[in-house]
Simulated scan of single mutants.
Amino acid sequence: MNTSSQIRKVYQGTSDRHQMFRMFDRHAQRPHRFESNASALYAGEWFEIAEREHDYMFEILPPLWIRGSMFAMREFLTGSVTSVFFALRIDGVIRFFHGYCDLSDGGSVEAMRLAIIERETRPVRAMTRDERLEHIWSATADAYRGYSDETAPQYLPGRRLITLFSASGSSRLKLLDDLTDEEIASKLPVQLRHLPDALAA
């Protein structure tokens, strides 16, 4: 299973409330969900939300803490990972973000804040290959994505699978990481297909 805790953008554009709640647990289908600590799987994920959703989350429960324009949720997702919400001024406009931070790392929240600002102030709109794959995973309905498990013909523990459809309407599963550039383009919305490639930070 991918256990990378690098800070990463997992959805392009501003998510609505339905999409926000779906992305709070993007890995719910992972095998043996309740048998292991998945902190490294979630820590570092972030995406943009609207002001309305930011304020809605602030009002659900008393925050664990409030620091300036940031607040953390009292309920932890897994281990020491919880939701942190940011209101950040970027290019003169206040924008809102959700990120999963591992609070056992005292620097994780500030690192997340700086990473979001750095990513969103790039002068040219572009996406890395990893960002394209993460967007596909985030935007795909649960029925068409999943994880390799013991029932797969070639068991690859914890690897993510995506359903591809042919022109004739047949379908097949393929590892998300193995999608070709053409397959990635076919799974992205039109407005994202032709964005230039960005170098990974």
Rank of each mutant, 00 (worst) to 15 (best):
F58A: 07
P62T: 14
N37D: 15
G106V: 04
Q191T: 11
A200E: 15
F165A: 08
R95S: 15
Y155C: 07
L161S: 01
I94R: 15
S39T: 09
S108D: 13
L176E: 02
I116D: 03
T151N: 13
A38W: 14
D105V: 11
L164S: 05
S170Q: 10
H27Q: 12
M20S: 10
D130F: 01
P62Q: 09
S108V: 07
G79D: 00
P189G: 06
A198C: 05
S69W: 12
V190G: 05
P31H: 06
R122T: 08
D25F: 02
I162D: 02
Y100G: 07
N37Y: 08
A72W: 06
R145G: 14
M1Y: 11
T3A: 10
Y42R: 01
G169E: 08
E51Q: 13
L176T: 05
L195K: 03
P153S: 13
E134R: 14
Y11Q: 02
I184R: 01
E134N: 12
M57H: 10
E150F: 10
E110R: 13
G146A: 08
W65N: 05
S171V: 11
S166L: 08
E118Y: 07
A200P: 00
F96C: 06
I60W: 03
G158N: 11
A115M: 08
I7Y: 02
M112P: 01
E131S: 01
M112G: 03
M23G: 01
V84R: 03
L156G: 09
A201Q: 05
A141Y: 02
L114I: 15
G79V: 00
A115Q: 09
V109H: 06
F96E: 05
R122S: 10
V81K: 00
I90G: 12
A28L: 14
K9S: 04
A185P: 00
G44S: 08
G158I: 09
W46H: 09
E131F: 05
D16N: 14
D178Q: 11
Q191R: 10
V84C: 03
R30E: 15
M57P: 00
R74F: 06
F47A: 03
Q154E: 14
G169K: 04
P123S: 07
E45M: 14
R125Q: 13
D197K: 06
V93D: 12
D91T: 04
F21Q: 06
Y11F: 15
S5F: 01
M20K: 07
M23R: 06
M57K: 01
L77D: 05
Y147M: 07
Q19M: 15
D102W: 00
W137E: 04
D197G: 07
A143S: 13
L64M: 12
R125K: 13
L199Y: 07
R8A: 14
Q12E: 12
E120G: 05
R74C: 02
R119N: 09
R129D: 05
R172L: 11
F96P: 02
L199P: 08
A28V: 14
I60R: 04
L175V: 04
F21N: 09
P62H: 08
D25E: 07
S80Q: 09
G13K: 04
R30L: 06
D178T: 12
A115Y: 02
D102T: 00
D177P: 03
L188I: 09
F47V: 09
E134Q: 12
M73V: 12
R89F: 13
L179E: 04
R159E: 15
D181V: 10
G99A: 15
L61N: 08
L176W: 04
N37M: 05
T180S: 15
E182L: 14
E35A: 14
